[in-house]
């Protein structure tokens, strides 16, 4: 009953937010609209972070790597070959997935903090490569003047900020919907099971490395697709868009939003990005400090995030049983029987 109410409540909030997002470009100015479009792209990367961190239980700091791969693939494609949106999204997703697949061998057997360090290193490596590989990426100057996108063959190019914003909204909403559907399938169930107890998953006969690889590649594809949205939103990209601060902010947003929920991750990532942009204006130079403090407060006060903070009761207490040393009580009755 209570769960029903919560479900309906959440559905209502989601619907309101969606309506707000659709009407936003007619309410705010062009500049804000463009910022909103960029925030949508980042929120979509946040969803890919949530998929790994929350759903699969593998915190990551490296989703900026496939995000960058997708963005640059889209920018090069958009400048030289095709301005068709669906092609750009598909190619960007493919580039993100390919980059993730390349790094899978590094992370498939590692867990926890090690993964954070490896993914962080991969993200930084990608930024370095972007800065050096001038012929393709334009180096630290980045790529500018990327032509506007047309969503589909035969449609006009999107010449206004409003139109480009609505394009990013439609693509982001479609991909979030796809992720939500994915989570309802067998794969989603197995990812959640793996987060709970990987050893048990293996003992039941599941190929955990395959599952982990699949999750990384899928998250890479989503981040890559988000990269193509950034290109549409800014029409300009540079390595600075994909730095460590972005990864850290996204992880922060996902943790604040509730790692296990895609909706929470979206809201959390969007809020954190908005907070950064706002703080950047009012407290120049101090934004990272404030966000860092926020992060520490979040992790300590709300271990399961805003979304779940009050909804999930604690599991019933387990009698303390050491894995290999069960309570002596259970054994006491056994031996005397033999002696009789």
């Amino acid at each position: 009953m209570r769960n029903e109410v919560i479900r309906w409540g959440r559905g209502g909030v989601a619907a309101l937010v969606l309506v707000g997002l659709v009407v936003a470009p007619w309410v705010v100015d062009d500049y804000t609209t463009a910022i909103l479009a960029r925030t949508l792209a980042l929120a979509l990367v946040g969803v890919s972070v949530a998929l790994l961190t929350g759903v699969a239980g593998m915190p990551t700091l490296g989703q900026t790597a496939p995000y960058a791969a997708g963005a640059y693939a889209c920018a090069v494609l958009g400048s030289r070959i095709s301005d068709v949106g669906v092609v750009q999204v598909a190619v960007a997703a493919g580039a993100g997935a390919a980059l993730a697949a390349l790094t899978v061998p590094l992370v498939v057997h590692a867990r926890g903090v090690i993964v954070l360090m490896i993914t962080l290193a991969v993200g930084e490596l990608v930024v370095t490569v972007l800065g050096r590989w001038r012929s393709v990426t334009g180096g630290t100057d980045g790529l500018a003047g990327i032509p506007a996108v047309r969503p589909f063959w035969g449609l006009p190019v999107l010449a206004t900020d409003q139109a480009r914003y609505l394009y990013t909204l439609v693509v982001a909403a479609t991909l979030v919907g796809a992720v939500l559907l994915l989570l309802r399938t067998r794969a989603g169930l197995l990812l959640r099971a793996g987060r709970d107890d990987e050893t048990r998953l293996r003992a039941s006969g599941h190929r955990v490395p395959l599952l982990v690889s699949g999750a990384h590649v899928a998250a890479g594809a989503i981040a890559g697709a988000a990269g193509s949205l950034l290109v549409v939103a800014q029409q300009y990209i540079s390595p600075a868009d994909f730095g460590f601060d972005t990864s850290a902010l996204l992880l922060l947003g996902v943790v604040i939003g509730g790692t296990a929920s895609v909706g929470g991750a979206l809201v959390g990532a969007a809020l954190v990005i908005a907070a950064r942009d706002w703080l950047f204006g009012v407290l120049p130079g101090h934004a990272p400090l404030v966000l860092g403090a926020l992060f520490v407060a979040t992790v300590y006060l709300l271990p399961s995030g805003v979304d779940r903070a009050r909804l999930r009761p604690r599991p019933t207490d387990v009698p303390p049983v050491h894995p290999d040393r069960p309570a002596v009580r259970e054994h006491a009755g056994a031996a005397p029987e033999l002696r009789t």
């Binding site: 293996r202 003992a203 006969g205």
Partner: peptide, 29 residues
């Protein structure tokens, strides 16, 4: 995992279940 697929199944001395999954989902997995 490969041994489980060949038919060796087990329970652990300390019960190992997927704690956020429902009982049904546990068995389904």
């Amino acid at each position: 995992a490969a041994r489980a697929r060949r038919g060796i199944n087990r329970i652990h001395q300390r019960p190992a279940v997927f704690s956020t999954l429902t009982a049904t989902e546990n068995v389904v997995v």
